[in-house]
Design a protein around this nucleic acid. Structure first.
Lengths: 150, 150
DNA sequence: AATGAAATGATAGCATT
DNA sequence: AATGCTATCATTTCATT
């Protein structure tokens, strides 16, 4: 992965729908080698895919919250089970395991508070191995999905 | 925004580089109206853009951490200043203001621990109005940027 | 608001340097 | 590994239903 590849990636982080022709122009390359490099980046997994970035409010999803989960230490054999279950809750749009406490951070998106309560009570509080959940609401997004500095 | 628009959005969340021809086929529409709807979704801001999803490790960025920031209450007039400053740190890829404590959650991506320390000490700890930072490391991602349920 | 058709422009493969 | 060429396919506009 040389500087040109990084430039290609940077452009596609800004606009994932750039045509190869336009991309080639921006990185000062002709179309064919640009196309070849792009395919290699995709096939090597460096570029994992492309996503439309959607406005949550336009979709009627205006309630975003973070849920911190701590598991029971005695039940730590349920970790894989917990992780699988979390990943299958559609309203959980981001989830990760952390060092220290809490064990997990989940990002939950719903239409409103009522829908959140339902997800919290029925989908999250009942997950296997959960000792404690705490949650907070996202007041304002400052930085969202910023293209990477490297 | 009707069901067809939501279907279009759902498809583009799965593959943001779908051609309009292919998109039209997937939502059972002919090319022209599909194209028109897509333009309207883009122009209304419902679709905010398109991004390549990049593999952090391939980019040499293998250290991901969360930094929680609490501001001094006396300095709450520095809030806008703090927010602007946070948004201008390139390694901060996601940031939001929360209800309760802590006040902010920042997601920081760097090449390694050493690079993180540098960002933490030089860019984050020195931000205006900061009372306390605490941080944790992301051990494992379970769910990343999931397409929205709705 | 969807369809079909036609001109412009992009993609992807290949031969060349 | 980059370039230029070319056939194929997609995009985008417009007239029509």
């Amino acid at each position: 992965m040389d500087a040109l590849d990084k430039k290609i990636i940077a452009e596609l982080q800004l606009d994932g729908r750039l045509t190869v022709t336009e991309l080639a122009a921006r990185v000062n390359l002709s179309v064919s080698p640009c196309h070849r490099r792009l395919r290699e980046l995709e096939e090597s997994g460096a570029i994992r895919g492309y996503r439309a970035i959607v406005d949550l409010n336009s979709m009627g999803l205006s309630f975003e919250s973070l849920v911190f989960a701590t598991l029971r230490w005695e039940d730590r054999d349920t970790v894989p089970e917990f992780e699988e279950a979390v990943a299958s809750v559609p309203q959980v749009v981001q989830a990760e395991r952390l060092f220290g406490e809490p064990d997990y951070l989940l990002r939950v998106v719903t239409a409103d508070l009522e829908a959140f309560q339902k997800v919290y009570d029925e989908q999250l509080a009942t997950l296997p191995g959960v000792q404690r959940l705490t949650s907070t609401i996202v007041m304002k997004r400052l930085v969202e999905d910023r293209p990477l500095k490297s």
